[in-house]
């Protein structure tokens, strides 16, 4: 089994729902984005179009971030999810330099979103879940998936542009979409084998 995600760029409307639902699910502090949306404008007036590219950790099959970690804090679960054991992380940030997709963030000090007002009750609760001085990243909402739910960004996408499933199962929806719609990964030339595929616009 290898968990994977397919993002249909034809359906994505650039609403930031994935980014916000991820923030709500994980309570990530300012400066930490497990899911993000890139927007890109292409062309010249009047023939301009806007492209959206939602990104998250690509959960590579051969993750460079795991190899460089000096403490085994970065590791892979059997289902292919690349994760960080915060208790082992020393905060050397080598994984951030090794990740070709820049999907890791260093949480150096506690911060909150409303300067002058102090931490909200939600932020206080959230800060208990995260350690400072360590690197953070997406883990495909592993706890949710084990509990039988979809990752937050998939479950909350209003355009149904995201699909989650088993890449090793040729009958799964993600495998079918990749095959039928020509799913592709970013920077395949690096040989990292990402588990996040995009369907063309």
């Amino acid at each position: 089994m290898r968990w994977g995600m397919v993002i249909d760029l034809k359906r994505c409307i650039g609403c930031y729902g994935c980014q916000l639902s991820c923030k709500a699910e994980h309570g990530t502090p300012p400066g930490v984005f497990f899911a993000r949306l890139l927007k890109q404008e292409e062309g010249h007036y009047p023939t301009v179009r806007q492209l959206f590219l939602p990104v998250l950790c690509f959960h590579c099959d051969d993750p460079p971030c795991v190899d460089v970690c000096p403490t085994e804090a970065s590791f892979k679960w059997p289902e292919g999810v690349v994760d960080i054991d915060a208790e082992k992380c020393v905060g050397c940030r080598a994984c951030m330099m090794a990740c070709p997709y820049t999907q890791r963030y260093f949480y150096d000090e506690e911060q909150y979103y409303f300067p002058g007002n102090g931490a909200t009750p939600y932020e206080k609760a959230r800060s208990q879940r995260h350690q400072t001085g360590v690197v953070m990243k997406c883990n495909f909402c592993r706890d949710r998936v084990i509990a039988g739910k979809e990752p937050a960004c998939v479950a909350n996408c209003p355009a149904v542009a995201r699909y989650f499933g088993d890449l090793d199962d040729p009958t799964s929806e993600v495998s079918r979409l990749i095959k039928e719609r020509g799913g592709y990964t970013l920077h395949p030339e690096l040989g990292t084998g990402p588990a996040v595929y995009y369907l063309p616009t």
């Binding site: 930031y16 993000r36 890139l38 927007k39 890109q40 404008e41 010249h44």
Partner: peptide, 8 residues
């Protein structure tokens, strides 16, 4: 002829 933006 493109320009990139990122949400936050």
């Amino acid at each position: 002829h493109s320009r990139v933006a990122a949400g936050h």
